[in-house]
Each structure stands twice: as structure tokens, then as C-alpha cells.
């Protein structure tokens, strides 16, 4: 029995026994009890690891990157000299930078459109009851559980210029005569990078959107069916509007992942052919780490931050408005 329980019992006994109340609980225990009862304190305490994590692994590197982009720091010389906007002027005057910028936008927009579309289709299917649903769900989630480097290396083999099994199958069916050189042709290379990225992100987007589908009260669909609404009308007037907020979250999440990702590009094409798949994150790596120019690498990496921030704010506001309505 805890001291607190004993004190409660003491309060219910006859007054003449009050004198026999045991010694008060030691101060430290009382102090602990009070702290444990203070919700505000607990809230801060529990948030502390997250805040420390964000400061240490997000805010600090972010601020450091800003500082770097206004300096002449290199990988071999970490000392900082302020150089104003020189690094920004240099990257803005670079053709490769603008190519990477365009590629980043193309990569992100097409990827996200495909991800949202496929995730919605999959979510619509996966909320239904059918035989073997668990197996289908398992298969859909599998790409998300595969380490990205391992997955990209597997894709590298699937898209190999000589040994591509995809080419092999297409030739078998007589659909192509010669190998496609997926990674050697700009359009196919970008298509390959997008396909692999979509393959990676679709599972998590599906799970998010599936949660939205499952949150739609069954009565709404039942009522619509009674009123004679078909699949497309329910989709247009119930499913899409009610899953819009969560879809927006999926888009935001996916877009940030896509903007920041360089793994698929790095492993599949290293930015080639002739920079056709170079994106800002991979160019930042090549310039900053491989080339040794940390300052320009930081400037390249930071370039999209204002755009991303604006997009994030816009999407979150839209979500809020939708929820309010």
C-alpha cells in the first residue's frame, strides 16, 4: 500500500485516532508525487526527447547549412569565411543547377501524381473484404520495408543495359526487338527513376489514405446507396471529399520525401545521362561532398527550402479549411 492510500484511510477514521497518524511521508517522495501529478511539467518532459532530437538532428544542421552557404567552407577546410552571396550567385549561374531544378520539379510532380492515384486505387481495393486480403496488403507494403539501397540495386539489375529481365520478357513476347537501355536514354532514365520512387512511396501513401477510407462512417455510404448513388458518384461526392485532408497529408509527406531523396538517382543513374536525371539533392551531394565544395553544396540543398515551406504551409492550411468545412 502506498503512503497516499494510507493517508486516505487515515482521513476516514475517528478523530481520536488522528494523533496516531504515522510520520509524514518523506519529502522527496512527496516532491516526486507532485511532479508526477503536474500535467504541464509531464508534457514538457515527454516532449523533451523530441525537441532535443529536432534541435540536434534537424535545426542545428539546417542552421549550419545556411551558415555554410554564405561561406567558403570546403570539405578539406572546415574554417568559415563569410563570402556574402557569392555561392548563391555561382549556383544560379550554373546550367547544371537549373537542369537539376527542372528535373526536381518534374520528378516530384509526376511522382506525386502517380503516387496519389495508385495509392487511392489500392486503398479503395484494400478496404474491401476479399479472400487473400492479408497477402495483398503484405505485398503492397513490402517495398516500404525493403531498404532503399538494396531495392535500388535490385532495380539497377532489372534495368541493366544488357541483362535486363524486363527486356528479356518484352522480347519474349515480341514487344521489342532490341534492348531498351532504360538508364541510357534521358526520357526512359527519368521514367525509371520515377517508377522506382513511386514503387517505394506508394505503400506508405496507401496506408495513410486507407486510414482515411476506413474513417468514413459506413452509414454515409449506405445512405448514398439507398439513394441510388453508384460507385463513381460515391467516389466523387463522398470518398474524395472526405479523404481530401488525409490525402493532402500524404501528398505533403511524399513531396518532402521526394524533394529530399537522392538515393534512387544516385544508385540508378548518378544523375546521367548528361545530367538528365540530376536532381537538386544529388547535385548538392556531387558538388558538396564529391567535389569538395561544401558551401555550394549547401546552397544547392537549401534552394528549395522556401518553396517547400510555402507548399507545406499552403497544404496544411487547405487541410485545415477542409476540416473546418
Amino acid at each position: 500500500m502506498t503512503p497516499a492510500h494510507r493517508a486516505d484511510e487515515v482521513g476516514t477514521v475517528a478523530p481520536d485516532t488522528v494523533t496516531r497518524v504515522p510520520e509524514p511521508t518523506p519529502r522527496p517522495q512527496l516532491a516526486r508525487r507532485r511532479l508526477a501529478d503536474r500535467e504541464g511539467f509531464l508534457a514538457k518532459l515527454f516532449l523533451l526527447p523530441t525537441v532535443a532530437y529536432i534541435i540536434g538532428l534537424v535545426a542545428f544542421p539546417f542552421v549550419l547549412a545556411i551558415v555554410f552557404s554564405f561561406s567558403d567552407v570546403t570539405t578539406g577546410n572546415p574554417s568559415l569565411d563569410f563570402v556574402g552571396l557569392r555561392q548563391w550567385r555561382t549556383i544560379l549561374g550554373s546550367r547544371v543547377f537549373w537542369t537539376a531544378f527542372r528535373n526536381t520539379i518534374t520528378f516530384t510532380v509526376i511522382s506525386m501524381a502517380l503516387i496519389v492515384l495508385i495509392a487511392h486505387v489500392l486503398a479503395t481495393v484494400l478496404v474491401k473484404d476479399f479472400k487473400g486480403k492479408w497477402l495483398v496488403r503484405f505485398c503492397v507494403l513490402l517495398p516500404w520495408t525493403t531498404p532503399v539501397a538494396l531495392a535500388a540495386v535490385s532495380w539497377l539489375w532489372l534495368l541493366n543495359s544488357i541483362f535486363s529481365p524486363i527486356d528479356w520478357v518484352l522480347r519474349w513476347f515480341g514487344l521489342i526487338e532490341a534492348n531498351m537501355y532504360y538508364l541510357g536514354r534521358p526520357v526512359l532514365a527519368m521514367g525509371s527513376v520515377i517508377a522506382v520512387h513511386v514503387w517505394r512511396i506508394v505503400p506508405v501513401a496507401t496506408v495513410i489514405i486507407m486510414a482515411g477510407h476506413m474513417a468514413i462512417p459506413g452509414e454515409i455510404n449506405d445512405a448514398a446507396e439507398i439513394d441510388g448513388a453508384g460507385f463513381w458518384r460515391k467516389l466523387r461526392e463522398i470518398t474524395i471529399p472526405l479523404t481530401l485532408p488525409i490525402s493532402a497529408v500524404a501528398v505533403l509527406f511524399g513531396a518532402i520525401l521526394t524533394f529530399a531523396d537522392m538515393t534512387v538517382v544516385f544508385i540508378l543513374t548518378r544523375g546521367g545521362p548528361t545530367q538528365a536525371t540530376q536532381v537538386l539533392s544529388s547535385w548538392a551531394f556531387f558538388k558538396g561532398i564529391e567535389g569538395g565544395d561544401l558551401a555550394q553544396g549547401a546552397a544547392v540543398a537549401l534552394f528549395l527550402f522556401p518553396l517547400l515551406l510555402a507548399a507545406a504551409i499552403a497544404i496544411l492550411r487547405a487541410v485545415r479549411r477542409t476540416e473546418v468545412m
Binding site: S161, I162, Y181, L183, G184, L268, T269, G272, P273
Partner: peptide
């Protein structure tokens, strides 16, 4: 040559030679 040479990694030409291609 073919367009494969535009997106090679360091092992690609080794693989192609060994494969007799």
C-alpha cells in the same frame, strides 16, 4: 556504341566485357 554508355556505373564495362557483349 549504344546508349548504354551514358548511364554506366564503374562496374558496367567490366560486366559487359565479361559477358562477352
Amino acid at each position: 556504341m549504344t546508349e548504354e554508355v551514358f548511364a554506366w556505373n564503374p562496374a558496367s564495362n567490366n560486366e559487359g566485357l565479361i559477358a562477352g557483349q
